[in-house]
Design a binder for these strands. Structure first.
Lengths: 152, 152
DNA sequence: GTTCCTGCAAAAGCTTTGCAGAAGA
DNA sequence: TCTTCTGCAAAGCTTTTGCAGGAAC
């Protein structure tokens, strides 16, 4: 029973790829599955290490190729909130990204990005909008307060 | 007279560096001057090639070091609107960046970023906000229309 | 059967590092 | 004088490329 459910999920992902004109190889299905089921904005490295046990022959070049294909096909997007690393996520609408400068975690937050209409850009054709914030997450704020208290 | 004005400008830039605890070497003064006087969001490469004629001994490592120092000191910021290249600008407030996907130009646009308050982030400490848009600039829209007309 | 993808290894870029000499405080 | 910066070269990463075999259509 469990296996049937799993197969259904994989079939749905396969269909998504076909809809977007991406040939549904096993590697691509697994990468997209990982993005859809883990909202952790992984790097290429993280995706590779996560999938390598399941696909022993997996090559990092394939992970690069796959993510390019997914981005190209509109199924994933790059998050460049941190200029030193590229992170990826399955395409979702209307959220921004917050990166904690202490722990490095990236959080989604709800924001109506389409509402951001800018008069300066009246003559422009805007196709993609990204909102990136940085600062401290609640956990790290608590930790910093503790450190300050201990320090005194 | 012109020379005096130039020197004054360089002195002002020198003072800016000192205020931010950055030792004002000639290289650093020239890099910051370039950022302040050219609103073109240059890459490291572009800054290097622009300054190399004036400072024949200039090393790219120094340009890297300098920009790290300026960003660290709060005098410059990184623009990661394009995940494949880092661009730099002198620190300015309240504007977003638009990148034309056709010509690659980056435009500033006015936006009151501080007004972007997000209820999901009530528990977070937000220190930096970036807004990046992509699409087509007015010139490229015109060119595309021409291409379509010629195509028919 | 054709086309496209994968995996490997090599190549290409970009960025950092180590160090000796030079410049700034 | 002491500290910090520069410039060079080498090293370290990340990403891309070329190609032979394999998978998808």
């Amino acid at each position: 029973m469990f296996i049937i459910i799993m197969n259904l999920q994989l079939d749905q992902i396969k269909d998504k790829l076909i809809e977007h004109n991406i040939r549904p190889s096993y590697q691509r299905i697994k990468v997209l599955e990982f993005l859809l089921n883990h909202d952790i904005h992984p790097t290429i490295e993280e995706i590779f290490h996560e999938l390598a046990p399941d696909i022993p022959s997996l090559s990092k070049a394939t992970v690069y190729n796959t993510l390019h294909a997914l981005v190209e096909g509109g199924l994933a997007r790059v998050i460049s909130i941190d200029e030193n690393e590229k992170r990826y996520e399955a395409m979702l609408k209307n959220h921004g990204h917050f990166k904690c400068e202490n722990c490095g975690c990236i959080f989604n937050f709800g924001i109506d990005i389409d509402q951001l209409i800018v008069s300066d850009l009246a003559q422009f054709s805007v196709k993609e909008k990204s909102v990136y914030f940085k600062g401290l997450c609640p956990d790290c704020i608590k930790k910093q307060i503790l450190i300050i208290k201990e320090g005194n």
